[in-house]
Design a protein around this nucleic acid. Structure first.
Length: 407
DNA sequence: TCAGAGTCAATACC
DNA sequence: GGTATTGACTCTGA
């Protein structure tokens, strides 16, 4: 296997100093690997530093503003190439971030606030930021696309003449991920797809107990005819995803601008009402001293968790003085020649100037007093959270032995 | 050992 | 053919 992980980890050893050599698109990998994430672009102007060092030294970034800008630049009304093609998440992920399409999608749709990210989690945002600052960012991506297309055609041609390749007759679920090398293929477990009823049952169980005991897990598993590991994984994933949803609410509550404010939130999908957990208590350090540095404003770090249960007050914040405002947002392309990003300036050298140009931000939808359906959803969700908390408090109170409390 | 974070990759969906 | 979703996995830290 060679995965994005490897390519990213590979960067640890190779502090992105390989320059133009790493412009080679992944698909030109002599191993013939198919679409695995490749080596991301070298970071401009900081060839002496590893990405980890850069992340560690990075000032606080506004992850939402960064993703918004990337989305504006690339998708979905994006930079259309002269031939009408678009950049894809896959291409961007593989060449710039060293991540797969799904991860990019997730990252762009639901960026976690900087202060909630681990060093590793910050890495893609630093990469994105550097990419945004690179005056040739878009051109490079275009080059990548061209090279990749060439490589694809080449592969396609050769596969036509070699149509009985190892995995030629195997579709989808036959082999374990990442073990493509012939002779080392293992039978693959089919992907578990939970049905709506199963999910519903699991969600109900979650609302009762976000951290079920092994016994409960066993029971659930047998009731739903699932493996216990599936149930365990489901709880892990669900907790983690709920937490992330709440981060997004946090951003929205804090500034009135959020991922959902520009046409349908992908982040608050479905009915996730009633999830009341997820405050890990980690609080923002509010590193104001790092304020200089980026062409993108900082987040306003408020109480991370407490707000979720305080619906009324967080609702009040829908003003247009959003901390997440994006300055310098040009007509979709801030690349070469644009005043945005100032190519020569690196991640750590931008001045305050850019962060004071909020007035020019024209594409931030005003989220003032006007309420949209999302606001209602948000309110309902928060109300559900409150109900859930009350419910659990009542439940806890009804138990005499504190050890039985389900918190 | 467990939970969280981060990610992959299969699959659903458009 | 692109993006979104999500079960499973690895890694890390407590």
């Amino acid at each position: 296997g060679h995965s994005a992980e490897e390519s990213v980890n590979g960067l640890a050893g190779d502090p992105l100093a390989s320059h133009s050599s790493s412009l080679k698109p992944p698909s030109e990998d002599p191993s013939g690997g198919e679409s695995q994430p490749g080596t991301p672009l070298p970071l401009p102007g900081h060839s002496g530093l590893s990405i980890q060092e850069m992340v560690a030294m990075s000032p606080e970034l506004d992850t939402y503003a960064i993703t918004k800008k990337v989305k504006e630049l690339i998708f979905p009304f994006p930079l259309t190439l002269p031939n009408g093609e678009l950049f894809s998440q896959r291409l961007f992920g593989e060449t710039i971030l060293g991540l797969t399409q799904g991860s990019v999608s997730d990252l762009l749709a639901r960026p976690k606030p900087w202060h909630k990210l681990s060093l590793k989690g910050r890495e893609p945002f630093v990469r994105m930021q550097l990419w945004l600052q690179d005056p040739h960012s878009v051109e490079k991506l275009m080059d990548m696309k061209r090279l990749e297309k060439k490589a694809y055609m080449k592969r396609r041609l050769s596969s036509l003449s070699d149509s009985h390749s190892v995995d030629g007759g195997l579709v989808g679920t036959d082999y374990v991920q990442g073990s493509q090398s012939p002779g080392q293929q293992h039978l693959k477990k089919p992907r578990v797809v939970l049905g709506p009823e199963e999910k519903e049952a699991l969600k109900k169980a979650y609302q009762q107990k976000p951290y079920p005991s092994p016994k409960t897990i066993e029971e659930l598993a047998s009731q739903l005819n699932l493996k216990t590991s599936t149930v365990i994984n489901w709880f892990h994933n669900y907790r983690s995803r709920i937490r992330r949803e709440l981060f997004i609410e946090e951003i929205q509550a804090a500034g009135g601008v959020g991922p959902g404010s520009e046409g349908g939130s992908p982040s608050l999908r479905g009915s996730k009402s009633g999830e009341g957990d997820s405050c890990d208590g980690t609080e923002s350090e509010g590193t104001m001293e790092t304020r200089q540095g980026l062409g993108i404003g900082l987040e306003d770090h408020r109480g991370a968790c407490k707000d979720h249960d305080m619906e009324a007050e967080s609702e009040a914040g829908g003003s247009n003085n959003s901390p997440a405002q994006i300055d310098c947002t040009t007509s979709g392309l801030a690349g070469p020649g644009s005043s945005c990003g100032q190519g020569g300036l690196g991640l750590f050298s931008l001045t305050e100037a850019s962060s004071s140009s909020h007035a020019s931000s024209t594409n931030i939808p005003a989220s003032g007093p006007a309420r949209n359906p999302r606001d209602n959803n948000l309110r309902k969700k928060k109300a559900a959270n409150l109900n859930n908390i009350i419910h659990r408090l009542e439940k806890a109170a009804s138990k005499e032995d504190p050890s039985e409390w389900e918190f």
